[in-house]
């Protein structure tokens, strides 16, 4: 994937985080609107699945950009990219599992 495509996805993930993160914050902190969101388990779960994916991509891509800037070497850039991808996939699986357990679905 080209670096420009990765950055385009970084911005799109950022916009997704603003929307889904707002829903997440309202669900957990607002007594009125929170009940409406947490009342529907599948709405909450879908929102969290998108939020988690967008947040992980945005955060780990941010870390990747900082690291490859600090170590500007093609070999290291590839290695960092693959390591970050694997960490991201593993964290997403664990995150979804924790979420399903918290909702009592597993």
């Amino acid at each position: 994937m080209r670096e420009s495509t990765k950055m385009l996805l970084h911005y799109i993930a950022g916009v997704l985080i603003v929307v889904t993160g707002l829903i997440h914050l309202l669900a957990n902190n607002d007594p009125g609107i929170g009940k409406l969101i947490t009342g529907n388990v599948y709405l909450y779960l879908t929102n969290m699945a998108i939020f988690l994916a967008a947040l992980l991509y945005h955060a780990l891509n941010g870390v990747r950009v900082i690291l490859i800037e600090l170590v500007p070497d093609m070999c290291w850039t590839k290695l960092i990219g693959w390591a970050i991808l694997l960490i991201g996939i593993a964290t997403y699986i664990v995150g979804i599992q924790v979420l399903l357990m918290a909702l009592g679905l597993v």
Binding site: L52, A59, G62, V63, T91, V94, L99, A102
Partner: peptide
Amino acid sequence: HRITGILIVLFMLPHFYST
């Protein structure tokens, strides 16, 4: 922006494992 981004990642990781 960079410093706040790093701080958010530092908060985010423990928050994932213990919601």
